[in-house]
């Protein structure tokens, strides 16, 4: 109950910030409409809705990192966290309280993204439901990154690192906007050593119903999510002790 009260507070803080709704829902939808319009005029296979929608669904999650990190860093900057550290809330309550409320937002964002994709021509199938389920580990990865950055950065730094750097990394190294095979070389190797392109290819395989191609991408995403989560917990507990 204690954790749920704290989680509910965090959900309210996130949902009441109009910028969060604007970037979390509005921006990915603008992208999906804009790129579909480009695709209608100049056909590019990468921007076909079956390819584009999973990419945008994954890219949109980078904003969850921003929301989560901003909330935590602002709480750290104010005395609110210090006050809450003197209450019976346990370290686990804090970690779950910051993590759990973002999951429904992330899933809602993915659902809306796929609904818009259906309107724009994506075939309705049970695979869309699977795509929403398979995006959960990707959500955990991005939320864990939020907990991690929120634990070590100030709210101003969060804007730069998560708002600019991570969203760009997530965009450039994910194969959403251009085919990584075309660039090749070190760029491709770096991209495939990071989780973003694997998350996109995982979602594309699920949407296509090509479940044999879910692997090894799912392992990459799960591996990175686990590493990010463990690192985030360690860093959060460290800053908690430093308070």
């Amino acid at each position: 109950m204690r954790m749920l009260t704290f989680a509910s507070r965090n959900a309210k803080e996130i949902i009441r910030d109009p910028l969060n709704l604007c970037f979390g829902l509005g921006f990915p939808l603008v992208l999906i409409f804009m790129l579909s319009a480009i695709q209608a005029n100049i056909p590019v296979s990468l921007f076909e809705i079956e390819s584009l929608a999973p990419g945008i669904a994954v890219f949109g999650l980078s904003f969850m990192t921003l929301f989560s990190a901003t909330l935590i860093s602002k709480d750290r900057a104010s005395s609110l966290l210090q006050r809450l550290y003197t209450t019976p809330l346990s370290p686990l309550d804090f970690i779950l309280g910051y993590t759990l409320p973002i999951i429904p937002f992330a899933l809602a964002q993915s659902v809306i993204c796929y609904i818009v994709a259906v309107i724009l021509g994506l075939n309705i199938s049970v695979n869309i439901l699977f795509a929403v389920i398979f995006i959960i580990p990707v959500c955990v990865l991005y939320i864990a990154l939020g907990l991690l950055f929120g634990s070590i950065l100030t709210d101003k730094q969060v804007g730069g690192i998560c708002g600019a750097l991570l969203t760009n990394l997530s965009a450039w190294l994910s194969g959403i906007w251009f085919d990584l095979q075309l660039v090749g070389g070190a760029f491709k190797k770096i991209a495939y050593a990071l989780p973003f392109v694997h998350a996109v290819e995982l979602e594309r395989a699920v949407v296509a119903g090509d479940f044999s191609n879910v692997f090894p991408h799912l392992w990459w995403v799960l591996g990175y999510a686990a590493i990010a989560l463990v690192a985030a917990i360690i860093l959060f507990l460290r800053q908690m002790k430093k308070q």
């Binding site: 109950m1 507070r9 309210k12 009441r16 005395s79 003197t86 209450t87 019976p88």
Partner: peptide, 27 residues
């Protein structure tokens, strides 16, 4: 209970919700 040096309130919550938050964390 501690009232820290800087004002320690949840800015996006109403006064009622802030009080409710503290009741909740104390179970």
């Amino acid at each position: 209970s501690v009232s820290p040096q800087e004002t320690a309130v949840a800015p996006g919550l109403s006064v009622f919700e802030n009080l409710e938050l503290m009741c909740g964390v104390y179970g």
